Amino acid sequence: MEKVIIDCDAGMDDSIALILAAKSKELDILGITTVSGNLHVDETTRNTLVSLELINRPDIPVYKGQAKPLIRELPSDPFSHGDDGLGNNHHPAPTLVQQQQHAVDFIIDTVKANPGEVTLLTLAPLTNIALAFIKAPEIIPQIKKVVAIAGSFGTNRASFENATGDNPQSEWNVYVDPDAAKVVFESGVKFQAVGLDVATHFDVNFDESDIVDLENSAQPEAKHMAKMMRFVLGRDYQSYCVLIDSMAVAAVIDPSLIKTLTARVAVETQGQVTLGQTVADFRHSHTWHHLPEIEVSVEADYKKFMNMVKERVMA
């Protein structure tokens, strides 16, 4: 089993990613940390607890993290996750409660207790991770890998047409806290970016029959997922919006699912129209070798991914 800490900003797609992870025997979830991103950290923590309660997993501890990005103020997400942040499912308030320890300290302590064994699976702005690296840089070489929903690298049309940041060239998680992304990218940690190129690919969409199957399932989490898909479809978005973060979870469950290339990547932290853009240098010549080198996800087995999500959520 792969030991993971999941860092999230639980809106709709985080919720399904958490459910997928918790129902996958390949993963040993040591804890879930929360941060502001899609919503304020108070709401993302609540939605994380709601998601775990929905699948009866009180054994997975939840740790609340940072309320705002490292430097800038928390931006308002132009994409609504509904009144409750979960596509207007309006579940009862959770009876589960968060742990007392701060998320950043939990990350530090857990990595130190499991050197070389922990994968950080990040579905949110990288604020908590950057602060852990700043506070305890000695943990960086002790981390097995970071697999993150982060960036947009221009390898296909989806990376541009489905941009999720609040400008034409960015992905939401990096856009929210580009300074944190820069800290993590440049830290030297082994880093796989699962960007919009694969996470919002045009082949990542459930059709009507899939949604009906979810609605007819006996599993409450399947109905929860279907209602969120109806919510986004009703606002002229596509169902992939509920699946984005699950792509990173699937990449850890089955690394063969995604093809990657190495690239040197810069994070734009100053631009007025490109804030949060991840600029990948794929060149063979004149490469900017001073930029950090990371793994960039460029292709995925989308059918296999979608089958995995559907089957496990309905199981």
Rank of each mutant, 00 (worst) to 15 (best):
Q169G: 01
K145C: 04
D13V: 04
T45W: 01
K23M: 07
H290A: 12
G87M: 09
V232D: 00
K25D: 15
E293R: 13
H290L: 09
V62F: 00
V41L: 03
V189M: 12
D177W: 07
L126C: 01
Q238H: 13
V296Y: 01
T44C: 06
L123M: 14
M229L: 10
V309L: 08
C8S: 15
F133Y: 11
M314T: 12
T45S: 12
Q272E: 14
E295H: 12
K25M: 05
A113N: 10
S24A: 13
V279M: 12
E2Y: 12
T155Q: 11
Q142V: 03
K68Q: 11
Q277L: 14
V147C: 02
A263H: 02
F191N: 08
V267E: 00
T262E: 14
T274L: 10
S159I: 05
V273D: 09
A148V: 04
H286Y: 06
L233C: 07
L30I: 02
T287M: 11
T200D: 00
D254I: 02
V298W: 02
M12T: 12
D84N: 11
C241F: 11
R312C: 03
D197P: 04
N156A: 04
T269V: 15
R312D: 01
E295C: 08
M228A: 14
E215N: 11
L49P: 03
A181G: 09
L291C: 06
Q277W: 00
T110F: 03
R57F: 10
A136K: 12
A136F: 01
T200R: 15
C241Y: 08
K25V: 08
L96K: 10
N88G: 02
V104M: 01
L214I: 07
H90D: 14
I6L: 07
V273L: 14
E138S: 15
P92V: 11
T95M: 08
I16A: 04
L52R: 07
S76G: 05
